[in-house]
Design a protein around this nucleic acid. Structure first.
Lengths: 212, 212
DNA sequence: CGTTTTCTTGACAGGGATCAACACTAGTGG
DNA sequence: CCACTAGTGTTGATCCCTGTCAAGAAAACG
């Protein structure tokens, strides 16, 4: 079942009972959690092809909401259907596991960023990550790509205030690394930015490993 | 294959090629990542019963090291053996998926802590989490439990300096919440601590859901 | 075009880092 | 069993990164 939602609405609201899984087809979304003190934390950005909930035999826990950041087209897939697909096709099963592992790795890297990297490093790291991920689904154009994110949304992902995101962006720009005009970053010198952001491109495993 | 290591040594060193999975049987361990600037970030604490690497059909990525915090007894289980066990026994398969989902949830909650909670809240939240997890494996004694962690180790998990961990601990103590003498915390008033730390006990899913 | 978001800047405050001692503990070997 | 040593916990002083508040500029949008 394919559906579309406009930007800025919840695809899965917080605390919803587990239902079918969401598969993002087009547009940007994110999973987030809002907390009692009024703040919110974006857990992960979801790009086309992402399956933000685990596909296994247990119902998802759904502690987190999923929201569209741009207009999003997505499919709702029942857990049973996903498992049936996995059972019947080894490549699909591999792809599902691969997605699960990679999203876990991205989340753990997020922990490292939030815990031990400075504001500019976090920001640069995120730009590198998103650029690489877009590249992997053919959505980057060389050193440029679309990135329809508000500075406030970046802030909610990076654990910063939107004011400081703005200043960190200026800091990176001043050091000649990325330019972010409008919502279209240009990573002028990818290697320099990666070095400055302590970004190791390997962790995303751009080439899929073989199943064993 | 069951092995033992003394405290403070790596069970799996950083960047090791994927091998058999580790299953913690006894003692405390953690997974961590050290970064170029000399800092390190603890990703997760591993208690008895934890299987810190995903069990699926793909080789683990092993971006992270696993270190013993106390003397640890652990088993090395080949990926194939785990899958065979899952295939042959639905309860085991359920348990494996459950473990995978819960550790993911704990990691995402870690993201929320690091991004949007104050030092004292993070600390209190971690104490609540570890207490509950210990309780789930019968290792807590009422409001007390063993917690063989150094303040520096807490700092590396919470993204703080060890000095500030010390001060946050005093802050909680002054507010009558937990007492942490030696390595044995007493959570005098669990509910008050949970409230002060924005801790929602539900996210650990102490009661396992049924497979569907 | 007017209105609402977003972006940008400045001033200021504060949480947490860093540095540097010093006090304890616990483990070690004599 | 005690002295020694290394690791851990505790404090104080100081600094700076980042948050908060507030307001104006620039985009986005209907």
């Amino acid at each position: 079942m394919i559906r579309s939602v406009p930007a800025r609405v919840d695809i899965v609201p917080e605390g919803a009972p587990p239902r079918a899984l969401v598969l993002v087809l087009e547009g940007w979304a994110c999973s987030y959690r809002s907390i009692e003190n009024g703040k919110r934390q974006i857990i992960a950005f979801l790009l086309p092809g992402d399956l933000p909930e685990p596909f296994g035999i247990l119902p998802g826990f759904s502690e987190y909401a999923i929201a569209a950041l741009t207009p999003v087209r997505f499919a709702r897939v029942s857990s049973e259907a996903v498992q049936a697909a996995a059972k019947s096709s080894p490549p699909i099963e591999t792809a599902l596991w691969w997605d699960l592992l990679v999203s876990g790795t991205i989340e753990r890297e997020h922990i490292v960023s939030l815990g031990r990297r400075s504001a500019s490093e976090r920001l640069g790291h995120l730009l590198c990550e998103l650029h690489l991920r877009l590249d992997m689904v053919e959505l980057a154009e060389g050193e440029e790509c679309d990135m329809p994110l508000t500075q406030a949304e970046l802030a909610d992902a990076l654990g910063l205030s939107h004011v400081h995101v703005n200043r960190s962006l200026q800091d990176l720009r001043a050091r000649g690394l990325p330019t972010l005009t409008g919502r279209r970053p240009i990573l002028h010198d990818l290697e320099a930015l990666q070095a400055a952001s302590l970004f190791d491109p390997d962790y995303l495993h751009a080439e899929k490993p073989k199943p064993r």
